[in-house]
Amino acid sequence: MASLTAGTGVWVYAICADIDDGRLSGVVGVDREPVRAVRAAGLTAVVGSVPLTEFGEEGLPRNLNDLARLESIARAHHRVVEIVADHGPAVPTRLATVYQDTDRIAGMLARRHDDFIAALGRVARRREWGVKVYGDRPEPATAVTPPLGASPGSPGAGTAYLRDRRQQLADRDVSHRTALAAAEAVHADLSGHAVAARRHRPQDPQLRGESRWMVLNGAYLVDDDIAEAFAAAVAACADRYRDVTIESTGPWPPYSFADIEDDADLTQGPP
């Protein structure tokens, strides 16, 4: 590990069955390096050589703590993943998967061959859609704003403030329960249109520059054939649950459904 601070490493973008070299011609990665295919065991890793001073153990944390660099790295990684996924079934690799050399990547492809084949089969002709549901109010932990115009010294002001505050909290509670119930219903409904579904951790409202409370951050793996039906289901949910706001993103490469650990567990577990 100590050697991973200098020299050249190999950044892995995605695993696929195969890809024409022509499709990767002119495509650049996180360091604007040309990306290329590493083939082994009937599988292909799409990779790029990167300097370990920038993408090694010391450089990477520094770069990921620089918002502009993080964004540039994330977008570059995503761009390559999209190109591979547009070409055919692809398993995206988690950001910042770096190997010492391509021999080690070839070894990994051979060793995890069956897992990758299974994962590629799961995502073939399917794409990921994101659906987020927001309550209209800030998060429950947000402080209640004291009422405007209530003069602390005036008689009855304290009582009125407490009464208003109690009512505010009660309203908020109902609003939050409504939003949570809508999130459950939307997730259940959309899961019915998907071959797999996952709930990600709700995003921090401050990260998005807004106060709305995210109650669902869902990801759905949907057959390409029924993508329109899925979009219609999202629209129907938006019509039905008027107390919340529903937004969708996608299609994405199947980031949220690329897990091969389950397969590994299955093969290692009892029959």
Binding site: P92, R94, T97, Y99, Q100, M108, I260
Partner: peptide
């Protein structure tokens, strides 16, 4: 998300 490859992985978040 995205696949986390164990074993030969030399660096990950």
């Amino acid at each position: 998300t995205g696949v986390v490859i164990s074993g030969e992985v030399t660096l990950s978040i």
